[in-house]
Design a protein around this nucleic acid. Structure first.
Lengths: 136, 136
DNA sequence: AGTAACTGATTGTAATTTGCAAGTACTTTT
DNA sequence: AAAAGTACTTGCAAATTACAATCAGTTACT
């Protein structure tokens, strides 16, 4: 499934047009996860080989970087680059769509409502927060 | 790959989290396509069995409806429902992301620039246009 | 009326991707 | 020294996708 076209939608889908990639990015952006274990343990139970594959791909594509935790040689912290952080608006719109058409848990509903009310500002703040993480 | 979780992102991805579904919707929304042949002939060369599968799924999920062309019994016109049309913001954001990070054809670049300048208004107009199509 | 082209599919088979369970190699904790 | 935690890797079965061919009804042409 390689390079079907130069269409912007298609080019984007060649990176995150699958069932798992955006879930990993969601975990980082909304659920505070940043290690292999974190991702493995998330609700949807991604398989370890798929996870490894996607992490390599996302790094290759420049959406995230690996950093070893200082004082914890074995631990690897996955951090989004700006290119990755900039998927925030995409995830917001997907969330908004689900909020309108899917039955969600009341937890998710209030969470999404907050996001909708916060809107632009909240997205900017979130982006700033992750850019800080990236640069330290 | 069924019902991994109730997370809004995941629920959405279970519908359009693959390489093809959003391309079909893009074709309808941005490229004026609305028949099986149209979709088959688009740049990325979707296989006919995959296309058939996705169209059935999208109808089942309520994102599009089939209408037979009056005066052309064989021809089936695929039309987005509001649920489908409401993926417009998602596609916009994906386009914006690609505009920032991918090398695009100059054609696509000017197209996306127009969309960015048009912004909200353009999205509203597009939605109205497709709602009209749906209701006639 | 007969034939060719067009329509939305379906079928069969090979290639690819995913899912699952187990294992590896190294590090940190106890 | 042993146990638990870390990021993966491996092997194999199952599911999905890709590709080419075919089908059956409809429309257009002569």
């Amino acid at each position: 499934m390689n390079n079907k076209s130069l269409c912007p939608i298609n080019q984007a889908l060649e990176i995150f047009g699958d069932k798992w990639t955006l879930l990993i990015i969601r975990d980082i952006l909304f659920n505070g996860k940043n290690t292999y274990r974190d991702f493995l343990q998330s609700e949807e139970k991604i398989a370890s080989n798929i996870l490894a594959d996607r992490l390599v791909m996302l790094e290759k594509e420049g959406l995230l970087v690996k950093k070893t935790d200082p004082g914890h040689k074995q631990k690897i912290i996955y951090t989004l680059t700006e290119k990755g952080i900039d998927l925030l608006p995409v995830l917001f719109e997907i969330g908004a769509w689900s909020a309108k058409y899917k039955t969600l848990s009341s937890e998710d509903k209030t969470h999404l409502k907050k996001l909708r009310i916060g809107g632009e500002k909240l997205q900017k703040d979130l982006k700033k927060k992750f850019l800080l993480k990236l640069n330290k």
